[in-house]
Design a protein around this nucleic acid. Structure first.
Length: 188
DNA sequence: CTATAGATAATCT
DNA sequence: GATTATCTATAGG
């Protein structure tokens, strides 16, 4: 029996949610898989878009209600998917960085081109391309279609490390992954 | 396998 | 005008 993720799941700080999301299954329409890599960001974090509570048109949904998506464009090219969380709308979010493909693998392969399955959803930009995620989903609730989230198994071994691709906040170990997974964007 | 270089254009100052 | 929560190709071990 599948257990859906309840809305209050996201009413916690980004670090806690990022840790707990490892092993959760993320589905969008008929594609998706198991979250094997996620990173936490919040308003105390120099690497975050909403550091010190700074608001811009782009990051508006990061200050919106928890349990919703924050989708932004990275390097002007790639879409990146975040889960907004926190209890006080102060700017907590978790960047989904990699999935272990489970559902709709052929569809995702068509969208991504000829890449090995272990690279299909490895990296935030690759993941959104595989699932067909665009800015249209920014601000949409994660607890309603087209999203579906399924709770993880009871025993999941989670590892942590420093985040990827940053110039600030480089030492914070706010990257979480599924131990020994070969679907992560980079080894831990 | 790891490391680095270059492309790329939206976003922000 | 500068920066960037990335990606791919390429060179080297």
């Amino acid at each position: 029996m599948d257990h859906a993720i309840p809305p209050h799941y996201f009413e916690r700080d980004a670090l806690t949610v990022a840790h707990d999301l490892v092993g959760v299954t993320l589905l969008l329409h008929d594609t998706g898989g198991v979250i094997v890599e996620a990173e936490a960001y919040d308003h105390t974090d120099p690497a975050s878009h909403c550091f010190a509570g700074r608001r811009t048109p782009r990051n508006a949904s990061m200050f919106g209600p928890p349990g919703h998506a924050y989708v932004y464009r990275s390097y002007g090219v790639h879409w990146c998917l975040n889960f907004v969380c926190g209890r006080d709308r102060s700017g907590h979010a978790v960047l989904i960085r990699a999935l272990q493909p489970v559902m709709g693998i052929e569809i995702m392969q068509q969208r991504r081109g000829a890449v090995p399955e272990r690279r299909l959803c490895a990296g935030p930009g690759n993941l959104t391309q595989a699932l067909g995620i665009t800015g249209e989903l920014d601000g949409k609730p994660l607890t309603a279609p087209p999203f579906k989230l399924v709770a993880r198994p009871s025993h999941v071994e989670v590892v942590s490390g420093t985040r990827i691709g940053l110039t600030r906040g480089v030492d914070s170990p706010w990257r979480f992954g599924l131990a020994k997974s070969r679907f992560v964007s980079r080894p831990f």
